[in-house]
């Protein structure tokens, strides 16, 4: 099991590095796909198969396809140096690095239980909690999705000329 963890962790990191460094739009999206798939498998390894497959369906199956279709429709080409390597970029990197170090220090002192008690991975307890205890957040999220759909349509609609 632990070997699978390392394998998918490595693949996820390769995907993340690719998204960070690649300049070709389609290849960048494919690196993201690699990261999404690996994270999905990591969910399954962590005993959350429901989430893992939802992750693969939503992120890998829909979000990246949406990106690829958008790239193809707008015929976005490679922009060789869109990386900001001036003083501003350097400063940003410094802060990102500082954030990383602070989080790492926090993680070292985080109270993580030594013997983890995995939650049951079956979908039933998840559904019980989602539709009883957390029904209102669930409904709000669904309204949010509706608003996003309408917003996206309004954003890209070609307005009739004056």
């Amino acid at each position: 099991m632990i070997y699978f963890f390392w394998l998918f962790a490595l693949l996820a990191l390769i995907g993340a590095l690719g998204v960070l460094l690649e300049t070709h739009p389609v290849r960048g999206a494919l690196y993201l796909l690699l990261a999404f798939l690996s994270i999905g498998f990591l969910y399954i390894l962590a005993g959350a198969p429901f989430l893992g497959f939802v992750q693969i369906i939503v992120y890998a199956g829909a979000v990246v396809v949406l990106f690829l279709v958008a790239i193809a429709v707008m015929s976005l080409r490679r922009i060789p140096d869109d990386r900001d390597l001036g003083p501003r970029g350097f400063l940003a990197l410094v802060f990102a690095g500082a954030f990383f170090l602070v989080m790492l220090a926090l993680l070292r002192h985080a109270p993580v239980p030594a013997a983890p008690t995995p939650t049951p991975g079956a979908p039933q307890p998840l559904a019980e909690a989602l539709f009883r205890q957390y029904l209102i957040p669930f409904e709000i999220v669904s309204v949010l999705l509706l608003v996003a759909i309408v917003g996206a349509i309004v954003l890209v609609r070609r307005r009739p000329g004056p």
Partner: peptide, 10 residues
């Protein structure tokens, strides 16, 4: 069933 849908979407 989710597995089937995931395979279909990939």
């Amino acid at each position: 069933l989710l597995y089937v849908l995931a395979a279909a979407s990939l």
